[in-house]
């Protein structure tokens, strides 16, 4: 299969006054087109760092990654919606396009359609504070999709939401990603969320962060994330991953 993203022996060291800290060590991973892969790991391990490197915000110390596309575009979605309160929903959604000077008539129309498709059409000229947390997160995703990314990076995109909206929004986001058919790498510390949303779950070790184990997820009657939690395999997968994470409280 042709992979959309190949990560090869990626490492990252942070140099401080007291010495060098290894955050990520020798990560090799491939992502297939249209696949959702979730990275789980204890907090403080370098999972967010890995996304930052892929997003081009930080540089890797060693190793490399390649995106199989002529003009690779990466969509990055953060923990908070990070909408600009002084811009309307529509202006927020086209922010990335404006910054990359791709705000052509065609692309703007595309964003308008995305907003309409994902039930935000009538909120176009409203401001973020007038929307619910889940809706804001949807706008943040559309802002990312507006750039037509080859791959989406989601950095704990639901962690700022309360539990109930978290379930609903993860359902929403899941369906949007599936519908647009974009490959996604998600970072999460929520094992249930990882199993219910992904095609594969990658368990990362504690610092320095390495790939410990990869679980392909094949659930019986797979459908939406909320429904997936009812699958018979769910509990045993949960237990295995929990053991792998080796969390000592």
């Amino acid at each position: 299969m042709n992979n959309i993203l190949e990560i090869s022996h990626l490492s990252k060291n942070y140099i401080t006054e007291t010495g060098s800290i290894s955050a990520i060590k020798d990560i090799t991973l491939s992502i297939h087109p249209g696949e959702i892969v979730t990275l789980v790991g204890t907090s403080g391990c370098g999972k967010s760092t890995l996304l930052s490197i892929l997003a081009g915000i930080e540089n890797a110390t060693d190793g490399f990654y390649t995106i199989k596309s002529e003009n690779p575009v990466i969509g990055y979605m953060l923990q908070t919606d990070s909408l600009f309160p002084w811009l309307t929903i529509y202006e927020n959604a086209i922010l990335g396009l404006k910054i990359q000077k791709k705000d052509t008539k065609e692309n703007k129309e595309y964003v308008r359609n995305l907003l309409k498709t994902y039930k935000l059409g009538e909120f176009e000229s409203k401001y973020p504070h007038e929307l619910s947390g889940g809706m804001k997160q949807r706008v943040a995703l559309i802002r990312t999709l507006a750039l037509k990314p080859d791959i989406l990076l989601l950095d704990e995109p639901f962690s700022a939401l309360d539990y109930q909206s978290r379930l609903a929004v993860s359902d929403d986001v899941y369906q949007i990603i599936r519908k647009e058919g974009i490959a996604a790498i998600m970072v999460s510390h929520d094992i249930a969320e990882a199993i219910s949303m992904s095609d594969r779950v990658v368990v990362l070790s504690k610092r320095p962060c390495t790939v410990k184990k990869i679980y392909p997820i094949h659930l019986t009657n797979a459908s939406t994330p909320i429904e997936n939690r009812k699958a018979p395999e769910f509990a045993s997968l949960y237990n295995q991953i929990w053991k792998d994470l080796d969390i000592n409280v």
């Binding site: 081009g56 915000i57 990466i74 990055y76 923990q79 600009f84 910054i99 990359q100």
Partner: peptide, 24 residues
């Protein structure tokens, strides 16, 4: 977080200033 977002868009220093830092 907003700075990180703009960085992921590949915004220039000037853009970061005008789109984010000053309005905020």
């Amino acid at each position: 977080n907003k700075l990180k977002l703009l960085a992921s868009f590949g915004a220039t220093k000037k853009q970061i200033l005008w789109y984010l830092v000053i309005p905020e």
